[in-house]
Structure formats: structure tokens, C-alpha cells
């Protein structure tokens, strides 16, 4: 049931940023770069989202390296399939929008 639900924009970009391992600040920078500066994840929002995604098994926390306090995260197989489903859903949204608006212009 949950697999059919839309991801939030924050969730989507966090997952995309975690295809390779990344720490919190890295995720914020990655999401901003991917969206050409449009999506700015705030730290409090990101913190809550990361723990929710770890609970769901979409991402996992990597073992903390010695001497570093920074926690790194990475996408899991489950997270990758959630992301795949979302890309298909977004494509449907965009295709329908283009098709219907395109028809309206021809009339």
C-alpha cells in the first residue's frame, strides 16, 4: 500500500543523494546541486527524514569511522526499488501533463 504513495520532494532527493555514501551535510549539498539550487534541505527536516528512512530500511547507516563523529548513510536495495517506482510515477505525471496540455494547445 505504502509502495503506491508519492514520496515528498525531500525524500526523493535524499534517496537520490544516497546512491553513494554520504553524510548529512553532503546530502544537503548534493540535493541542492542536483536541483540547481532549488531544493534546500534544512538540517532539522533532514535529521527526521533520515531516521524515518533507516526505520523503513530504505537507507542504512554505515559504521562510523574511528576518530570521526560524522554518520554516513547509503541507499539499500529496498530504497533503490522505492526510488525506481517513484521515477516511473513521476514520468507518468509528466507525460500526462505534457500530453493533455499539448492537446489543449492544438485546439
Amino acid at each position: 500500500m505504502i509502495e503506491n504513495m508519492a514520496l515528498t520532494e525531500s525524500t526523493y532527493y535524499i534517496l537520490l543523494s544516497l546512491v553513494s555514501p554520504q553524510h548529512g551535510y553532503g546530502i544537503m549539498q548534493q540535493a541542492e546541486a542536483l536541483s540547481n539550487g532549488r531544493v534546500r534541505l534544512a538540517a532539522g527536516t533532514l535529521y527526521g527524514a533520515l531516521s524515518a528512512m533507516v526505520d523503513k530500511g530504505w537507507i542504512r547507516q554505515l559504521p562510523v569511522e574511528e576518530g570521526s563523529r560524522k554518520k554516513e548513510y547509503q541507499l539499500t536495495e529496498k530504497g533503490r526499488s522505492v526510488l525506481g517506482n517513484e521515477v516511473a510515477r513521476l514520468r507518468e505525471l509528466a507525460d500526462n501533463g505534457e500530453r493533455i496540455l499539448g492537446m489543449a494547445q492544438e485546439e
Binding site: 525531500s10 534546500r40 534544512a42 532539522g44 527536516t45 533532514l46 527524514a49
Partner: peptide
């Protein structure tokens, strides 16, 4: 850089 604690409506509501 920009400094906000919450960037979406859901996390503002949770606060």
C-alpha cells in the same frame, strides 16, 4: 549559507 531548521510543511507541523 542559508540557515533554516525546517524546509517542509510536515516537519513544521511535527514541531
Amino acid at each position: 549559507g542559508a540557515f533554516d531548521l525546517y524546509s517542509d510543511i510536515d516537519s513544521k507541523i511535527a514541531h
